[in-house]
Amino acid sequence: MEHILEVNDLTMHYTVKEGEVMAVDDVSFALGRGEALGLVGESGCGKTSVAMSLIRLLADNAEIQKGSIVLDGVDLVPLVEEEMRTHRWADISMVFQGAMNAWNPVYKVGDQIWEAMQTHFPLMTESEARERIAELFRLVGLNPAMMDRYPHEFSGGMRQRAIIAMALSCNPKVIIADEPTTALDVIVQDQILKELKKIQQELGMSIIYISHDVAVIAEVSDRIGVMYAGKLVELGPTDEVFPRPRHPYAYLLLASTPSVKGPRRKLAPLEGEPPNLLHPPAGCRFHPRCPFATEVCATDEPPYTEVDEGHIVACWNWEQVPELGRLEA
């Protein structure tokens, strides 16, 4: 498959008073044209840091130390801010988490979408823009008349739909959906996910989903990447990783999540918390919490092993990881 986005050895650090926080460490993945890739992991494991590095909206104390982000042949890492600005939204846009505050309360929703289009397509007239926004609103299941309303007149689900419409407005090559449904109730969440998936398939969009919710990711992604403590620990097709995770962390993450549709299985708790990235554990970062850890895990970083075609895992003992539901609790 042709790649629209290639991320190679991306490393991003935050500098704080106590030292360096390695939020993203040597992360590499590629996104095919029209593909949906899901990134999953607990809070604080670097998912959002990856997203923010991709669109290069990092805090002042953050720095991309090495690696490249090649979007349709252009490496975004060395670009100066003004050049990067022209790529944002036009080439890579975002569906933000928490639809609540993603809208500026003092402007009409339609105007906020128009603003993005005006920036990237200065020649577009207002009537053309309104037509395009109406079309987008219909696509995401909103009444086009709503474009002249203010954000506070929208419900949570409607706001999220409008956010999706805004993300699509400039025909970006890649969309990053960062916790697109987290702030919504389960029913609306399901509607929005279905809608997103439908739109993605209709328009052949390349999209990166980011969520802590395994069920969400499993529903919408073609491939899954599991992140832990700033590292990508497993990456493979959804229908391989989901039923048969190879990394102990992925395994425990899935085993601790009940599945409604799949076969009944015993739940296993995932104990402890992700490590403090100021002083990550040596060797494999998961070894202090890992039931399969051996001596080598505490000293050496595990390399990626290709367990199947297009399915890689960073673990010394991946062969020990049993099938889901077989773990003795």
């Binding site: 669109i55 036009a90 975002m94 505050n101 993603a102 809208w103 993005a116």
Partner: peptide, 23 residues
């Protein structure tokens, strides 16, 4: 969050500052 949205949209810094933050 809407300041982040504005910046993600690729708006020039001055527009983010005046139209979104200062407003």
């Amino acid at each position: 969050d809407y300041i982040l949205t504005a910046r993600a949209k690729g708006l020039p810094d001055k527009v983010v500052r005046d139209r979104h933050a200062a407003r």
